[in-house]
Design a protein around this nucleic acid. Sequence first.
RNA 1: GCCCCGGUAGCCCAACGGCAGAGGCAGCGGUCUCAAACUCCGUACGGUGUGGGUUCAAAUCCCACCCGGGGCACCA
Length: 966
Amino acid sequence: MSASTPEHTSSDSTHSGETPRLRYNASLASDIEQRWQDQWESDGTYEAPNPAGPLADLAKVAGRPKLFVLDMFPYPSGAGLHVGHPLGYIATDVYARYKRMTGYNVLHALGYDSFGLPAEQHAIATGVHPRVNTEANVANMRRQLRRLGLGHDARRSVSTTDESFYRWTQWIFLKVFNSWYDEDLKRARPIDELEQGYADGSIATPDGRSWADLNKAERRSAIDARRLAYLSEAPVNWCPGLGTILANEEVTADGRSDIGNYPVFKKSMRQWTMRITTYADRLLDDLERLDWPEPIKLMQRNWIGRSEGARVHFASPVGDLTVFTTRPDTLFGATFMVISPEHPLVDALTTDENRQAIQDYRVAASAKNQFDRTDDTKEKTGVFTGTYATNPVNGAPVPVWVADYVLMGYGTGAIMAVPCGDQRDFDFARRFNLPIPAIQQPPAEWFTSRELEVQRGSTVDTSTWPEAFVGDGVYINSSNSDLTLDGLASVDEGKSVMNTWLEANGRGNANINFKLRDWLFSRQRYWGEPFPIVYDEDDQPVSLPDSMLPVLLPELEDFKPQALDPNDDVTDPIPPLARSTEWREVVLDLGDGPKKYRREINVMPQWAGSCWYELRYLDPTNTDYFVDPEVEKYWMGPADGGDGTTGHTGGVDLYVGGVEHAVLHLLYARFWHKILFDLGHVSSSEPFYRLFNQGYVQAFAFRDPRGQPVPASDVEERDGAYWYEGEKVSREYGKMGKSLKNIVTPDEMYDEYGADTFRLYEMSSGPLEASRPWNTRDVIGMQRFLQRVWRNLVDEDSGRSLVIDTPATEELRKLMHRMIDGIRADMDALRFNTAIAKLIQLNNALTQEAAAVGGSPREVVVPMVQMLSPLCPHIAEELWSRLGHDQTVTFVPFPIADQSLLVEETIEYPVQINGKVRTRLTVPHDADQATIQALALADEKVIAALDGEVPKKIIVIPGRMVNLVV
RNA sequence: GCCCCGGUAGCCCAACGGCAGAGGCAGCGGUCUCAAACUCCGUACGGUGUGGGUUCAAAUCCCACCCGGGGCACCA
């Protein structure tokens, strides 16, 4: 390969004598960049070879370690990119390029997450079909990103809306549907093995009868009850404003939709659900084996929300009422119970005289949206059912109340209330005058800090307490004839004693509960993957065979979701696919002759495609399988060669993206990947081994005195204030957005500076993980740097090379090796900001030497261009070519520092007296401590400063400094 | 309310517990120029949000608080 390097360019410099013909400016940069982009494309420079299949190139795979670098793929929004978007893409590109230069076979590609709500909403607004709109957006993003010079393997760029892609999304859905979770083996297994287990008696049927005694419908329901994807009639998050239901993860804390901010209501509907809760333990435990930022792990742990406790059965006139508690040890203090308004036993427990009040309360509770319902600042409400249950440890009657602070979706939807030890129960008991017996002795300080007399033993009287006592305290009033906790001081011991008693007496058992709920997997929209499911004459779901995939999204005249008032929580949703009777009603032969079926008319949620897209990058053209196992093992297999269940999990080597997907995409993708792992389709047990969260590029926005945003680019700063058209405006810091009039696009940067300058600025403005403000004013600094590099190598007027073959001075050579050493370490650790600082430092030193000796020594220029190339590949390729190379710099080995040049012969030691620097000593680098100490004590300034005093202590840190303590 | 992350020069940011400054922007002085732009050279008493503590030594470790950003929030 070789891109021709024309000596003409810079159209703006041809007629004015002022700017040199080959000044490195936006125009020359643009010329260089687009020329090399074309060259890379035609050479397939960044195409990564596979070990097998259509993209195989065994000669290129051999002897190179592999590296799979991944970005969170973008949603192709119609607004295009702003300068904040590419931060992570540039970083992964720099890293991928660096790793190629250290010998790796690097896979780096970018696809598009192109199903989803925004395209559909755009379609509603414009009447343009979402596919047309989506494809136009993808094309525009491709153009913007190509101009950045990202070294992606274009062959692997898939879109989730491609039929050849979503065919496999549907295929994976069927794998999930046709699997069950074996709680003993702790893994998913094919559904056939469940049926076999039922048939041969090794697995008990739900009601314990033998398989032979079950009729067809009962058998079917026994199997369907265990599927990992199942239909359930349950309260779901219904968002009329969007015309669809949403996953818990898509609903904000104040009960509104993540997208669009519409109200969300609880509504009972029959929906597809994924049994992610069966994986709760593994999703939690395997976090330990991942190289992820600790805060993200924490967010996932919190979301999964594991609590250890016990289930306790309280006898009641209508049967056992079971509660979940994390504090079984406090059972002696349980004086009432509260059940959720949705609890199935509410009607049975309600006595006639309380029926009207309970009914009114339930109606009121169901009318509240989630926000009102879970607002913990409000006073507690509740109604007595009229019924008493029995406390299993002391036989005491406990009134059963209904209150909306108890949620049906968590635990058993019923709690035992221990008002002395739980603030909510305490509040509730005070409000309704229920007794509050003490079962733990608070310590003396607890009373004194609340300005109470210290109460002990029989004087403990909760009626004077301002609040519940929550903490460790010796148990009191906690015994019956064969169980006593009294005198114990350890909560752990109390729990364990109580759990043993409960189990021995059949009144409960130790139990673990999770906050995580199963994942609602259907959406009432058009622009998503259709389910590969039909319903038979019994209205039961049947999976389609692989040969009928993909189930294509039908072309509809009217693809709009149903338009509803955002507050209409009564009307049922009607998915757009319901409108095509022709598509919905089909006659199929599923092995037992042609029959009539009805297709599933919901579609999958946005997250489906992103649950597995990284696997398709590996083998994008495979028509027989979603990914060739050999190819998957090569790119994603466990690094320790193990089976993935222990040790290294395998997965993507580096995954870079924003923190906003901490509990959505990252949890769902892990879940799907684990199912595929259990079923033997992938060798890695986690999709993303190492995760890195990049920060956000934010921006300032300015508002005039009326609060209207004004164009940020036209605001001037004077005397610490901001002005727009003579008017003082206020400044705020936050996101870039059209409505805030503060968007800066990559295209503007390409036009004004070129892609290399833009890349360099993005990487230099701060550490990758930090958010920082965009400051167009600062970009010029990186342009000047590249100009200086260019000018050190190329004569701006003639294009003549300024590189000389005379050796560099010792000083410059040593500096260069120090920089090589540091830049390698920075690159490995993704610290591109400090790597750039070192390159500038090196070039600044080169500039001085070049001026002194009349040229730039080749021994410095060559490594510098190599080190520059991951960060700004176009100018580096151009300079590399001008240095006389006819091959791309992409695979040239990254420079290695000569360790012998890193050691300075002498070291300057600061000498401190009591921590203050008094003088400096120049000492040979190999001087021992005694020598350094002697030199320090002999120094005139030290002698003067000590003024005859003898130091009490002398600290000599080799290579660092000396401190004398007097 | 609880939990994370961060506060260093006018701005963006560097500093294995060891001389607070690598780099960039802006500013200032000089160099070039008839002048300017460009270039090149030079230029930092800010003591690291506040208050304590540990240490010979703290931006760095510990405690409390303040400010900014984010997550969770009646989860029994």
